[in-house]
């Protein structure tokens, strides 16, 4: 299949059809190559796992990571809007319509930051956030799934925000402003599922700070839902 448009940064390279996002396979690989005295023109080894999607390093990788989180949210919220469980209340429907809209704004903003022209295909066309393991036929099931994903997204932002380079400050500010709304969403969902469970000890530690998750931890939590694809965040900056 040749029907993918590659992100311009590595469009020229001839890659296996599903090996996108691999700018920074460069990181590990080229460090090794340079250490070995190889020139830049040395062909890079092609990863052997066709389902491995390695996020690039630097701010771009952080944007991909945020995009994936938003993709998880939009997929789930869209499903709840399209096929609401029969016991969804009017308030539930209204809240989820907004959750969906906000998550789409965030997802598409991050996509715009990655690819301003809007022409690249960032992931294989059959790459999805798979909902089959959730129980989405009851209000409790939808809210439990939504709480799981919203808590994860809220926990990701405080770490993500510390990883941007100096050149990413405007993107960082937008992510700060989006992350705050994601946290509002998490509390809204928590209160719908269990009134008064906002900011509970599951998500706020004993010193009053949000319990956060690193990109590695978030990626591990999301991994089952992206199968058979495997996301690697190994190139992302590591939190201090």
């Amino acid at each position: 299949m040749s029907d993918y448009t590659f992100f311009p940064a590595w469009r020229e390279q001839s890659l296996g059809r599903r090996v996108f996002l691999r700018v920074s396979a460069a990181s590990a690989a080229s460090v090794a190559l340079i250490a070995a005295g190889c020139s830049d023109s040395t062909p890079e080894p092609v990863t052997s796992d066709p389902n491995l999607l390695t996020l690039p390093s630097g701010d771009s990788g952080l944007l991909y990571y945020a995009y994936l989180l938003s993709l998880a949210q939009t997929t789930l919220y869209q499903k709840a809007v399209d096929v609401p469980p029969s016991d969804f209340t009017a308030t539930d429907r209204s809240v989820f319509a907004d959750l969906r809209d906000h998550a789409i704004v965030h997802r598409e903003l991050f996509r715009y930051f990655i690819d301003p022209a809007g022409t690249a295909v960032l992931f294989p066309t059959d790459f999805v956030f798979n909902l089959t393991s959730f129980t989405l036929t009851s209000r409790a099931g939808v809210l439990a799934a939504a709480q799981q994903i919203a808590d994860l997204a809220a926990a990701a932002f405080p770490v993500l925000l510390t990883l941007f380079t100096a050149s990413g400050t405007s993107q960082r500010l937008m992510m700060l402003k989006a992350g705050s709304v994601v946290s509002r969403q998490a509390a809204a969902i928590r209160d719908l599922l269990t009134p008064g469970s906002f900011a509970s000890s599951n998500v706020v530690d004993s010193t009053g700070l949000l319990i956060t998750k690193t990109p590695m931890e978030v990626n591990t939590a999301l991994a089952p839902y992206f199968a058979p694809y495997v996301i690697s965040v190994a190139n992302l900056a590591v939190p201090v």
Binding site: F157, L161, T162, R184, A188, A199, V204, G208, L210, T212
Partner: peptide, 23 residues
């Protein structure tokens, strides 16, 4: 940097409070 990391973890707690009062 230490205080910045703390503040970035306080902000979402404030967001959850605000969301709850609105609920």
């Amino acid at each position: 940097a230490v205080l910045t990391r703390s503040v970035l973890r306080i902000l979402p707690v404030e967001s959850q409070h605000a969301s709850h009062v609105r609920s």
